[in-house]
């Protein structure tokens, strides 16, 4: 199956390492990526106008369908938004007709069969842990990692169908592939706070701090994310606002694509670890330097 890489809006400028690391990991796994000019997934505008958000999402899916690809996202919010749109488009004939009539001008059609996949599902279900494990050259034994799920991939469960929304395991299993230990921590399923960033900063940072504290209490060396917004919140936002809320910089955050790529032995130019605002390399080096 071919995947069309869906970077989303924030990655090109704010988180380029998410793209380079993902591409590098998938290259190792011989996954071919199609590059299409997608538009915004629609998630940010959903507060204002659900139909506009659904049109945005539908156009992306229709573009992928034209090329016979599945959409591969690395962001939980993009993923959730595409799934949400697909759910209601499938369910509501009238909505579907409206959207398709708007897409018709570009010869695009939304159809039900378009597949939307998150990077984690591709890695876990399409590749499988064994295939990943075979690529690990730098096992991260001794590293304790808190995996942060990201709300919009988990819930609403029957819409996104990502994993069990109450007791998911996919992320911990993937972390285990690298040799690291996935710690059990409170708030692993909770919100990182980013949806309110620059909308209500005290609340947003407070939610962030709650998560960080929980990860620290569980003894994690690193937090890993598989979502653009979670990573921006855990890394860039935390780094920029340390004094506001006495937010602790430990444990640092790392994208799962970076973590996995590191265990594959990939190079810094692909992983972009130095691009992370809060240094996460020292933790990785600690466990591999033995």
């Amino acid at each position: 199956m071919k995947y069309a890489f869906f970077a989303g809006c924030k990655i090109p400028y704010y988180l380029p390492q998410a793209e380079t690391a993902t591409r590098a990991v998938l290259r190792v796994l011989n996954v071919e990526l199609e590059n299409l000019e997608f538009n915004c997934c629609g998630y940010p505008v959903r507060h204002q106008n659900e139909t506009a958000a659904i049109l945005s999402a539908a156009r992306n899916m229709a573009l992928a369908r034209q090329k016979n690809c599945a959409v591969l996202t690395v962001c939980k919010c993009c993923f959730g938004q595409l799934k949400f749109a697909a759910h209601w488009l499938a369910k509501d004939q009238e909505l579907r007709d409206t959207i398709n009539s708007l897409l018709a001008a570009e010869n695009l059609v939304w159809e039900k069969e378009i597949e939307i996949k998150h990077l984690l599902s591709v890695l876990f279900h399409d590749m499988g842990p064994d295939r990943l494990r075979a690529c690990v050259q730098r096992p991260l034994y001794g590293l304790r990692v808190a995996a942060s799920y990201g709300c919009h991939a988990l819930r609403p469960g029957h819409v996104v169908r990502f994993d069990n929304p109450m007791t998911p395991t996919i992320f911990e299993n993937l972390v285990a592939v690298t040799g690291a230990e996935a710690v059990d921590w409170q708030r692993r399923l909770e919100c990182c706070g980013h949806p309110l960033f620059e909308k209500n900063n005290p609340l947003s940072l407070h939610l962030l701090d709650n998560k960080i504290q929980a990860a620290r209490q569980a003894g994690a060396h690193l937090i890993t994310t598989a979502c653009t917004y979670c990573q921006l919140q855990f890394d860039n936002v935390r780094h920029r606002h340390p004094s506001d809320q006495n937010i602790n910089l430990n444990p640092p955050a790392v994208l799962f694509s970076q973590l996995l790529g590191f265990s594959f032995g990939l190079e810094e130019k692909d992983l972009g670890l130095t691009k992370n605002a809060i240094d996460c390399q020292k933790e990785l080096e600690k466990v591999t330097k033995v």
Binding site: C151, H152, R155, P156, M166, C191, G193, P195
Partner: peptide
């Protein structure tokens, strides 16, 4: 309504 972080915990 405006401070909801859209975490969907309630809905779930």
């Amino acid at each position: 309504v405006w401070d909801c972080v859209t975490c969907y915990l309630c809905q779930e």
